[in-house]
Design a protein around this nucleic acid. Structure first.
Lengths: 145, 145
DNA sequence: ACTGAAATGTTGCCTAA
DNA sequence: TTAGGCAACATTTCAGT
């Protein structure tokens, strides 16, 4: 991870479809050198994914909730990961300090589909109960890390 | 916005560098047809950006918390927005149903800087108290928040 | 939707530090 | 031994039909 890698990340953050040659021209490297660095960044897990940002309102994904997850006994993070991975509405999740075992950020098309997704989380064994806070109005959304 | 557009969005979400031909093969369309649709989705603002997800630990931003915000009396969403906008560690926030007034997702370099950021939220007038859940291990990170 | 020309991605090999 | 450049080849993009 040197300055060149950081510049590549910046460029890809701005446009993940940018050509290797274009990036190289900006940071002063050949296309193949850039490709090799990008491949390495992906292999090393620095770049997690090449994705797009979609206007949530157009996509109709404008219903959100923060859900606290309470489990029975102790549950390994790996098991929570397995449960939550199966639900595409889960946008973001992590185990947390405090009384809840995990907090899950969900986004879905509407309330019924949110409810259905919640149900899929709840039926998992070891999940005791959940406590949801539905988002009324989105205040801040600083997309991208 | 038909089902084909939605399939294209799904594919690009999974891999924004996917070739038009590859996408076409999956959803049953020619490469040029896919390109025209993608161009239209970008022009219409449905696709906001082509970007990458970077491992936050590489950026040195590996401490996260979900914070419930409790206010005194009734606070307008605009005021919460004003308060939270001033704190760059706030990644995501919204007013919610339930006993808390808002939920705030914060990301910072380490615990001390998280504490400092929290303090900046707490000193705002009308903010009664906060309840934080610090993220122990990140399970899912599917979106850009 | 198909085609061909142009652009870009990909890989092997060589050189330099 | 690691990283970059160059060149040849494969694939993709893109405009014109």
């Amino acid at each position: 991870m040197d300055n060149l890698d950081r510049s590549i990340l910046d460029e890809l953050r701005r446009n993940s479809r940018a050509g290797y040659g274009d990036i190289g021209q900006i940071i002063g490297l050949s296309a193949s050198a850039v490709k090799r660095r990008v491949d390495r960044l992906v292999a090393d897990g620095v770049i997690r994914a090449f994705t797009i940002q979609v206007d949530p309102t157009v996509d109709g994904m404008n219903t959100e909730a923060y859900v606290e997850l309470f489990c029975r006994g102790t549950v390994a993070p790996e098991e929570l990961l397995r449960i939550l991975s199966a639900v595409p509405e889960v946008v973001d999740a992590g185990t947390v300090t405090g009384s809840a075992d995990a907090i899950v950020h969900m986004r879905s098309r509407d309330i019924p589909s949110l409810e259905a997704a919640l149900e899929r989380v709840r039926i998992a064994p070891n999940v005791d109960h959940t406590r949801s806070a539905i988002v009324l109005s989105r205040l801040i959304h600083r997309s991208n890390d």
